[in-house]
């Protein structure tokens, strides 16, 4: 099918943000305390990209979806137990760091190489999806760099919607300031789309999807390529997690306006 897409979603694996996250300095630079024992999730930004990608593939006949993810293999395996229940996908596993403290350029080079190795990949049909930002460090540059490595010049960031047209082009909504969208029409792939939140909710866990995915997931994990990302030359001056403050008060039947006023007052006290 001439107008079909090959959607490749680049998604990192991040520690479950509901866990206690504490930066520490290790022999290889900054890290999170007990990082390997923390449960992990697919980066929430990239997860939106995955769901949107799966939806697009369902709409446009002949399209395919791959998920390219770099993380320690054990972590990838853990995350896939949940992700694989969400949408049909083909995994391209890269066994490498996922700490969020790796150099974005080297990470992008590794991911681009992984994309090129996908059997049957046709860069002229490629839509490279990923998160606009990342929950690991929020640098938000890796996807852009992967696109550049692959020679893709049409790049969109903060995407909330893609609408394929009959002529093979597609319309893209990008977030801009003032809570508005910029509407662009792209003549066709290849393109990079860094997703904001899109409009799709998280798909429900589907055992049939999980079963179908599992037939290819374990082999993909077993043949995961090694992702060599060094931290040489990187220097982090300071690492910290966002400051949290908690004050709990139970109120009943309080008007929402009053709740909002109180919250604003509390936030602006800082």
């Amino acid at each position: 099918m001439s107008n079909s897409f090959q959607v490749v979603v680049c998604a990192s694996v991040v520690p479950d943000p509901l866990q206690t996250l504490e930066p520490v300095s290790g022999p290889n630079g900054p890290a999170l305390k007990n990082e390997m024992m923390l449960p992990a999730i697919l980066d929430p930004w990239a997860a939106h990209a995955l769901y949107e990608g799966a939806n697009l593939v369902k709409q446009v006949a002949g399209s395919s979806l791959w998920l390219v993810s770099m993380a320690p293999k054990a972590k990838l395996q853990q995350v896939m137990m949940t992700v694989a229940q969400k949408v049909p996908l083909q995994l391209v596993a890269v066994d490498g760091p996922s700490s969020g403290f790796a150099d974005a350029h080297q990470t992008a080079t590794t991911l681009a190489a992984a994309v090129r190795t996908i059997p049957g990949i046709d860069l002229s049909k490629l839509l490279l999806f990923g998160g606009w930002e990342s929950a690991s460090r929020s640098a938000g540059v890796t996807l852009q760099l992967v696109g550049e490595e692959l020679g893709i010049v049409d790049q969109f960031q903060g995407v909330d919607a893609i609408t394929p047209q009959t002529d093979g082009s597609f319309e893209v909504l990008e977030r801009i300031e003032g809570a508005r969208h910029q509407v662009s029409v792209c003549a066709g792939p290849p393109a990079v789309l860094g997703w904001a939140t899109g409009s799709l909710g998280e798909p429900r866990n589907d055992p049939q999807v999980g079963m179908a995915n599992m037939r290819t997931l374990m082999p993909a994990l077993q043949r995961a390529m090694a992702g060599t990302v060094s931290s040489d030359g990187l220097h982090y001056a300071n690492v910290t997690t966002p400051k949290q403050q908690r004050q709990t008060r139970i109120v009943k039947d309080m008007p929402t306006d009053e709740v909002a006023r109180e919250l604003v007052h509390w936030i602006t006290q800082e």
Partner: peptide, 19 residues
């Protein structure tokens, strides 16, 4: 987690959380 990781890497059983 430790047991589950070994089981999943064996490829012989499937464990589906959230279900």
């Amino acid at each position: 987690q430790w047991v589950g990781a070994q089981l999943m890497s064996s490829g012989t059983v499937q464990i589906w959380p959230g279900m």
